[in-house]
Structure formats: C-alpha cells, structure tokens
C-alpha cells in the first residue's frame, strides 16, 4: 500500500515540478508515437480500404491471414528484426538509425501497420456492400467510392487509429532493443518504467506508468470527442 500511495503523490510531484528529464521523456514518447502512427495511418488506411473494397482480390486467401498474423506480431520480434536490419552489419546499417528515434519509429510503424490495415479492412468490409453500388449509380468515381466508404466506416477506422496508438505508446520491447533506452536520446516512458523497476524504484516506475496512462487517456478522450463530433451514435 505504501508503494502504491507514494506512486500517486510522486507522479503528481514529478508533473508539478516539470522535471526536465521527465518532460524530455514524455515529449520523445509522443514524438515517436505520433510520427509512427501518422506514417502507419497514411500507408495503412488506403491499403486496408483497398483490400476491403476489392471484391475479387487475387491472393486474398494469403494476404488476409498474413495481415491478421501481423496484428499479433510480438513487438520484441519486430524490434529484433529492425535491430538486425539497422545494425552495422545489416542491410540498412548505413542509415545510422540504430539507437536513434528514427529507428524506434521504424519499429513502431511496423508494429502499427498491420493493425491499421487489418482493422481498416474489417471496418470497410462492415459497410453495406450495396453502398458502393449506390454511390457508383450516383456518378461517383472509384476514388470517391473509396472515400465515402471510408467515411462511412469511420467508427471502425477510428478504432484502428486507437488500437494502433495504444499498441505503440505502450510498447516496450522493440523500442528498448532498437532505441537502446539512452538517457536524453531514446528513453521513452515505457523503457524508463522498465529501468526504474529494475533499479527497485517501484514508486517512480509506477508514477511513470500513471503518466503514461494519463497520456493514453487524454489522447483517447480526444479521439472519442472526435467520434461524437462526427455524429456517430
């Protein structure tokens, strides 16, 4: 009970004092998460929509199970893969991205991408199949049909965004491997939590966890307001 109680007061104290190291960690967490999320969405939503909208997609029997498997990718495996690719001996070692935020963004994007594609695909498939026909009959182009269908599936697509965001911001294995948890450079909230736990600073670790949860909550709250604002009921 002592540790739990202290964690809450510590969390408030850390926030109140605007602890410089903490602010840095929070900002990096948000930066890595949001950049990876935006890339995953920009690429994943069109692909997910295309798969969902294409009735007779060649290779669907293989593509869809692959996507579903990707949705459950163990982040550590993604981290390991990214590590090896970005390592000096790896094919992309020349980029010098290992142990940098860029490398972390690569890993996080890979983790988020199948989630975005899979959930967007499912959301689009959940739209009444007669809708595209109706839109075509109203003189829509293929692109307009896709846009209207995506907007119609916006609840599901928002769920894809939320799921991807949650997966990335709470992920620890891949960013630990690829980023290296370097203080002031690649340390994010999750890796800081692991570190403080290992140091035995349970109260600090827990207070970092509370801050992480608060960040996730605030963002999801914003997403939800957006959903309500869209007139979804």
């Amino acid at each position: 009970m002592g540790t739990l109680g202290r964690a809450f007061t510590d969390a408030l104290g850390l926030l109140w004092n605007m602890d410089a190291a903490l602010i840095e960690t929070v900002l990096l967490t948000l930066q890595v998460t949001l950049v990876a999320l935006v890339i995953a969405l920009a690429v994943g939503i069109p692909i997910g929509a295309a798969i969902g909208l294409t009735r007779h997609l060649p290779g669907r029997w293989l593509i869809v199970p692959l996507i579903y498997t990707g949705m459950g990718l163990p982040p550590v495996t993604v981290g390991l893969f990214t590590y090896l690719v970005l390592s000096n001996q790896g094919p992309l070692g020349g980029l010098g991205w290992l142990f940098t935020p860029s490398g972390m963004i690569v890993a996080q994007t890979i983790i988020a991408f199948p989630l975005v594609v899979g959930l967007t695909m499912a959301a689009v498939q959940g739209v009444d199949p007669n809708l595209p026909v109706q839109m075509l009959s109203l003189g829509a182009t293929r692109r307009q049909v896709a846009t209207v269908t995506l907007l119609e599936a916006r609840v599901g697509v928002t769920a894809a965004v939320v799921a991807a965001y949650g997966a990335i911001i709470s992920e620890v294995g891949a960013v630990m491997l690829v980023g290296g948890n370097i203080e002031g450079e690649t340390r994010v909230l999750t890796t800081a939590i692991v570190l403080e736990t290992r140091k035995g600073n349970f109260a600090l670790a827990l207070s970092l966890g509370i801050i992480l949860l608060s960040l996730a909550f605030l963002t999801n709250f914003a997403f939800h307001r957006l959903q309500v604002h869209q007139g979804v009921r």
Partner: peptide, 15 residues
C-alpha cells in the same frame, strides 16, 4: 454515367 442514376428499393443512406 453521371447522366443516369438509380433509386433502389432499399435506400442506402450514409451515416
């Protein structure tokens, strides 16, 4: 295509 349009038995309205 835009010269012609159909009203179906089931109105597919958007949300």
């Amino acid at each position: 295509r835009r010269d012609v349009t159909t009203v179906f038995q089931r109105p597919m309205l958007l949300r």
